[in-house]
Design a protein around this nucleic acid. Structure first.
Lengths: 176, 176
DNA sequence: AGGTGCATGTAAATAGTTACATGATTAA
DNA sequence: TTAATCATGTAACTATTTACATGCACCT
């Protein structure tokens, strides 16, 4: 399960609660990893049972209690082991491209909507990455990952800008 | 289920068996869609039950029989409807980038191996896309999708080439 | 009065992969 | 003889999302 490894990895950067891990992952790795509470909380429970993390309940004023997790030495080792042996795939899953493949079945309006929306999303991601990248305390590996995201997203936006007209005009003229 | 829509879409390009659909999808959409028999065959059965496809058993000499599916008018409508209303997300899921984020925990050899392997995979994809793109009978939408893949993959390879040294040398010196 | 953020968790549903089972033909 | 291609399918498993349940504090 990648979720467990991801939790260990997040905790290697500092102690955190499940809630905080989710936010952190979304912020820092959001452009290539998905997370949800439904996978994080069970993962943390399992890790605790396996002795890979420890947990301290922390009371807060004006906020609910939280469970702050931290890596044990065994957890730190497990993380290293996971990173050495887990798969290294880079996958794209795109309903966006899939739909565009069948542009000849769709009205130009729908095509334009899809393209515009996607460019917006890409640009939001780009803005976030820029904001994130001009901090200085960022480790080299994370800079690389963020820069990678920036590079391919920039290429994606440029490509759409230069070619979207072809797709839109290939749409299906007749409306129901 | 995206698999069903994908089957309908594949069949809109011509009648085919489950086996043929898988090959076709891998070839044409492989860089942004995954498929396996375990999802295709059940999907085709369901589609048949719903009356969205028809099926003819075809005997072949020197090969096993096959079940050739074709769209019914209802299936063609369903496809259009799916394409109009389904989600349009473009997602990247990358263990590759995830691992590199923690380069400081890994030996340079592992980092170099991962990077080299990924560049190779990208270049294989690029070769396939090139071969695929210089056909002439390809619909506009598919050209767009293939070109998109080409654009971001090229950017990815260039980025890795230009920045990999930083990551590798940020690796963990001490070996166990 | 209503929305957002903080915070944890579970259950059901969804989706999909992997491995297995079968078996003929053809090329190296 | 060994592997690959052709061909269909199921069952068990893995993983993950979605929706739900709860509840206080803060801002508008």
């Amino acid at each position: 399960m990648l979720t467990k490894t991801m939790c260990l990895a997040a905790l290697s950067l500092g102690d955190a609660s499940g809630y905080e891990i989710k936010k952190m992952v979304e912020e820092s790795f959001g452009h290539f990893l998905a997370v949800s509470y439904g996978s994080i909380y069970p993962a943390l429970s399992d890790l605790k049972e396996q002795g890979l993390v420890e947990c301290t309940e922390v009371s807060q004023e004006a906020k609910p209690d939280k469970k702050v997790y931290s890596l044990t030495p065994a957890g730190r080792e497990k993380l290293q082991d996971d990173l050495m042996h887990c798969r290294t795939e880079h996958k794209v899953r795109s309903e966006f491209l899939f739909i565009l493949c069948f542009s000849h079945l769709l009205p130009p309006e729908r095509l334009e909507e899809i393209l515009t929306l996607q460019v917006e999303k890409f640009e939001q991601g780009l803005a976030k990455a820029a904001h994130w990248l001009n901090r200085e305390d960022v480790p080299e590996g994370m800079k690389f990952a963020a820069g990678f995201g920036q590079a391919i997203t920039t290429a994606a936006v440029r490509y759409i800008r230069e070619h979207q007209q072809n797709v839109v005009s290939s749409g299906d003229g007749k409306e129901k």
